[in-house]
Amino acid sequence: MAIRLARDLAIGKAGLAFVRPSGESAPPTGGGMSLYPTYPLRTQRLTLRPFTRGDVDAVYAYRRREDVTRYLFDTALSREECALAVQQRIGQVALEAEGDKIILGVELDGNGALIGEVSLIWRSVEARQGEVGWIFDPNYHGHGYATEAANAVLDLAFGPGGIHRVAARCDVRNERSWRLMERLGMRREAHFREHALFKSQWDEEFIYAILQQEWQAQRAEQAAT
């Protein structure tokens, strides 16, 4: 299961056109807070931690697969490309400026295997917008690991990150991923048809989102039951 992060083009479409003057009044809430999480993040069965150079083979094991890259902008990666991707991820551990990403390897506590990655991008500092994404090894699908890891990332975004809204997007055919977005309590906010080209074909895309107050209410409810 994998979802692409918004391509710059798509963001430009929404972002650039939003050259709306912010007016005289201040934003309702302050932005500009950086996020330096303390790693690793632990969940019931998983450890979320920064990538290391030793992860290349594990990443290659799933990023080489066509079924993993079907809905990603990338095609299947070679081992060299995986090494480069891992190298980039090693430094993606904090949010300091708009556009920064945190990308964490997801490790299964039982056997220490790297089973995928989750990510958080800081899309807008002023409006405190974030975007989450994930890529998981199909060998580990169906156990709720992606849900567990994504929950931890949303906790990070809405808690220490102080993000106001987190969005995620995926191809309409990528049912595993949008089902996960729905399990996370995200709302389908967009269903675009033929708004762009994706791998030489017309694209059809869902965007899901959840607000900070909705997430917190949901977490409080889960804690109560």
Partner: peptide, 25 residues
């Protein structure tokens, strides 16, 4: 067709924005 309904995805004139996208092919 209504293709998107964004809630509080941006600030507009100092307030949270709510925005709709419509499209036709």
């Amino acid at each position: 067709r209504l293709e998107a309904h964004y809630r509080e995805h941006a600030l507009f004139q100092g307030e949270w924005d709510e925005e709709l996208h419509f499209a036709i092919l």
